[in-house]
Design a protein around this nucleic acid. Structure first.
Lengths: 182, 182
DNA sequence: CGGCGCATGTAACTTGTTACATGATTCC
DNA sequence: GGAATCATGTAACAAGTTACATGCGCCG
């Protein structure tokens, strides 16, 4: 059974600090983007639903000089539910790599087109790897965060995987170049 | 804009040989499982829709000793559409790694529970890697398939990535063990 | 003759994306 | 004053999963 996971990302982030919906989205886009994504269409309704269940509570922002926003805070019930979910087995992820599908059937198209695809894929992920390396450096500077080590482990996952991608791209480009010249 | 990709997997497989819906599903489950998946709920309706568009045609199986099945074959129009899709840029994949989300917030739960998660994740992917290694050996034995090299490239992707996963798991297990004993 | 795999399908549901709307505030 | 970003939302749509139904053919 596929369980909705949006509520738990929200709970996770709110377990660290109270945030508005907009801030949660920002947070996910910046920190989690390499392994997670959420759209507003999922996020805002999920916040409403979590509040109805009593897992989170909202209050207006205090800084009256700025535009008011709705800040959400986790409740102790929400914290319990989060812990319960964290303890549950990880569901099998269903991944779809369009690039591999195209590579698999690439004999049907021009090598140069496939090379273009690989090039773009490689560039995109090199970019992501760079960002991760930056994050890692930043994190190593400030060691006072409590889940410092856990975050570094998550970043390391990205670094390992994106490095693997890069190597694959290099080899595959070479393969396609060779195939082209015969 | 997110385009449905099920039709193109079907077209791809049918570009190699004519198959029934059931066979297509089998094929994807076995050969593509590490980077793609389809459910019958997507597959059968997609076949109907592709036939209506004239991208594929169906005919009853010939072997009358066995139970009849509907075999689909790609049309030249379908082949053109497949090629057109293969040439289009690869869309950004939206990946969600539940294991990383749980790792990120793992300070909230017992180390042993998280270790269990990692253990399972590692075991599952080690299994997949083994299967890929098997496939690779099989493929290297029979070199007469036309897109032999492309398939090997796809397999290599899986091998690289799953090896990266395994290393990450080892290091993360070690990290959690250390964290546990302090 | 019972169970498993072959074979095809669909309805109900859940999940996720996109596009749009609205208006405030900030920065140049 | 106009563009960008902050901030919150929703309706319509698209995509994907699950659970179920049905029946054949083969093997032990």
């Amino acid at each position: 059974m596929k369980r909705k996971k949006t509520p738990y990302v929200i709970l996770g982030l709110l377990s660290e600090e109270s945030l508005s919906g907009y801030e949660i989205k920002k947070y996910i886009d910046i920190r989690f983007s390499f392994f997670w994504n959420e759209s507003y269409g999922q996020l805002y309704p999920a916040l409403k639903s979590l509040e109805r269940k009593g897992w989170i509570v909202s209050h207006a922002s205090e800084d009256k000089t700025k535009r008011e926003k709705t800040i959400y805070a986790i409740t102790s019930l929400g914290r319990e539910e989060l812990k319960a979910w964290l303890s549950e087995p990880v569901e099998k992820e269903s991944i779809r790599f369009e690039i591999l599908l195209k590579m698999y059937f690439s004999s049907l198209i021009d090598e140069d087109v496939m090379l273009e695809h690989i090039q773009t894929f490689q560039k995109n992920h090199a970019q992501q790897l760079m960002i991760l390396n930056m994050f890692e450096k930043e994190l190593q500077a400030v060691k006072d965060i409590d889940n410092h080590g856990d975050i570094l482990r998550v970043i390391d996952f990205g670094q390992k995987v994106f490095t693997a991608y890069d190597e694959w791209c290099e080899e595959t480009k070479h393969y396609l170049e060779t195939r082209k010249n015969k």
